[in-house]
Computed example of a mutant assay.
Amino acid sequence: MRRESMEGSSKKTSPRNKENLFHVIHKVPAGDGPYVRAKHAQLVQKDPEAAIVLFWKAINAGDRVDSALKDMAVVMKQLDRSEEAIEAIKSFRRLCSKQAQDSLDNVLIDLYKKCGKIDEQIEMIKRKLRLIYQGEVFHGKPTKTARSHGKKFQVSVKQETSRLLGNLGWAYMQKLNYMAAEVVYQKAQMIDPDANKACNLGFCLMKQARFDEAQSVIQHVLEGRVPGSEDCKARKRAEELLQELESRQPIPDLSDALGFNLDDDFVKGLEQMINEWAPSRSKRLPIFEEISSFRDQLAC
């Protein structure tokens, strides 16, 4: 029995098992190519500069180009080299598979946000929404598998649409176009509501001096009537907005002074978006049917 136990222990600590355990712990792929060495430099050695050099080598060698380009851009962003990352994706995404393009678009959106390139961010988000409308995302499937912090989870088309609309609303807020942001956040909340977007919607209403509407939206968060209301950050922000609202001294709305209105923007109507984006074959998703009443709502 003692001998068998010792043999079992020997198997568990064999070099091969140790190597496999190392890859699992550090989330480093097996092998010895430039991409694997790049991930080792990034995750184990914590040397982002060396990782970038090796990611370049992986791309040039054709070694897991999809992952190498995306991972390199992420590391560049962490080093405040977002401009370089944008150019790298634009130059080399043609080498990547069709399946990788959606992920690269998401990385680009984050890079544009990091660089303050709001107009480019808006155009990219609109392009992704166009693809959703045309039924060309997720390869025709209702969900896709996403990964965050090493964990996999399923994302539906509905959730992805709401996420993109939320990002679009945030971008319009950065341009002080609160009217456009409000419309986008309203639609995002209709599709897949959450507390963070509700707070942003309340803020946009406040900036337009629509205090009663803003209070109603914010109260829904504080009363736990919006998904995600239990989140501490969302609740704290709602409380701060309510305090500002009660003081009736929000920051002045500058959208009129800057000439922003619905006629200037993509949000002139999401219905116009539908008319322009309608594909030759009818593949309109049900969530876009909700948007078709947008013009009627504006008229009310």
Rank of each mutant, 00 (worst) to 15 (best):
K114W: 03
K27N: 09
F203S: 01
G166S: 05
V24P: 07
A41K: 02
F22L: 08
L242T: 09
K175V: 01
K141L: 14
K152I: 10
N60G: 14
Q174L: 08
L176A: 07
M190P: 03
L129F: 09
M6G: 09
Q208R: 11
P48A: 00
V24L: 15
T143L: 11
R235T: 12
D231I: 13
S282E: 13
S156K: 01
K117M: 11
E240L: 10
E83T: 14
E123R: 11
P227D: 08
K46I: 08
K175D: 01
V107Y: 00
G224S: 09
S103V: 06
G166C: 01
Y133D: 02
P193V: 05
Q249M: 11
E230C: 11
D263L: 12
F55K: 00
A181N: 01
S14K: 01
R94Y: 14
A257G: 05
Q134G: 09
V28I: 11
C300H: 13
K18T: 02
A257F: 09
D212T: 11
L298S: 10
M190V: 07
M206E: 03
V36D: 02
C232K: 15
A146F: 06
K158P: 02
R3H: 11
G202Q: 06
A41I: 05
L164Y: 07
G150P: 07
N261E: 13
E7R: 12
E160T: 12
H23E: 05
A238E: 04
K128H: 07
E223N: 14
Y172R: 04
C115H: 04
C300N: 15
V157R: 10
S247N: 08
A181D: 00
K268H: 15
R3W: 09
M76H: 01
L129D: 04
Q159I: 05
D256R: 10
R248S: 05
F203L: 06
R284W: 04
I132A: 14
S148I: 14
L241P: 02
I287C: 06
I125L: 09
A278R: 15
L245E: 03
P227S: 09
I291C: 09
H23Q: 05
C204L: 00
D194S: 03
G169S: 03
T161A: 15
G62Y: 14
S10A: 10
Q78F: 08
